[in-house]
Simulated scan of single mutants.
Amino acid sequence: MRIVVVDDDKLVCEALKTILEAEKDISVLTIGHNGKEAIELYHNLKPDILLIDIRMEILTGLEAGEAILKTDKNAKILFLTTFSDDEYIVKALKIGAKGYIIKQNFECIVPSLKAVYAGQSVFGDDIVSKIPSLINKNNKTDFSNYGITGKELEIITTVAEGLNNKEIASRLYLSEGTVRNSITNILEKLNLRDRTQLAIFYYKNR
């Protein structure tokens, strides 16, 4: 797994490089310190994942990520930041970032990179818990266009709220087995991998 690390704090970059290269299957190609460098390094080196901070000089990580994704929609960008500001989370979701994790959760960095490399989206628990409160209540999407029924939309909404299968079953007066099967069917209809991606999909389309 080939990684480019970009952070305006040089000590953080070196610490991340040390942590990541302790893993046999991770190689840090280089490090950068601002958004402009991030764009140049991504296009020059084509890393598997760009691990990037948000608040930086010249261009922010979000501005850099958006520019990269406009030219390469398959780019895998994982934001690593000290800030869980709602505005940043919304922007990261909208531009198509593969993840957003908090620096303080250092133990999550390697597992998050591996998950993103495997094609998953990764948003830390503290970020996922914010998603329901960020949901725009003005409908933008007719979910029936995806073959989603009214009952399935209710289930999607409860997943986005962070409820587990037992809690969903209790709220919607369904069996846990029905909830579990429905979520599997919903994921297949929407071509999504997991509950986190489902919550993000709901957020982005409401």
Rank of each mutant, 00 (worst) to 15 (best):
I89E: 07
I89Y: 03
I89A: 09
V90H: 13
K91H: 06
K91P: 05
L93R: 12
L93P: 07
K94P: 09
K94C: 06
I95L: 11
G96D: 05
A97F: 03
I101W: 02
K103S: 01
K103E: 00
N105R: 13
N105V: 14
F106N: 14
I109M: 04
V110M: 03
P111R: 10
S112N: 04
S112Q: 02
L113G: 02
L113R: 03
K114W: 02
K114T: 03
K114M: 00
A115W: 10
V116N: 01
A118L: 09
A118F: 11
A118W: 13
G119Q: 04
Q120P: 13
S121T: 14
V122K: 00
F123L: 05
G124T: 11
K130V: 01
K130Y: 02
P132Y: 00
P132M: 00
S133E: 14
S133D: 13
L134D: 08
I135C: 14
N136K: 14
N136P: 12
K137Y: 15
K137H: 15
N138I: 11
N139K: 15
T141W: 13
F143W: 05
N145G: 10
N145E: 11
N145M: 11
N145W: 12
Y146A: 08
Y146M: 09
Y146W: 09
I148R: 00
T149C: 01
E152Q: 02
E152H: 01
L153E: 04
L153C: 06
E154M: 11
I156R: 01
I156T: 01
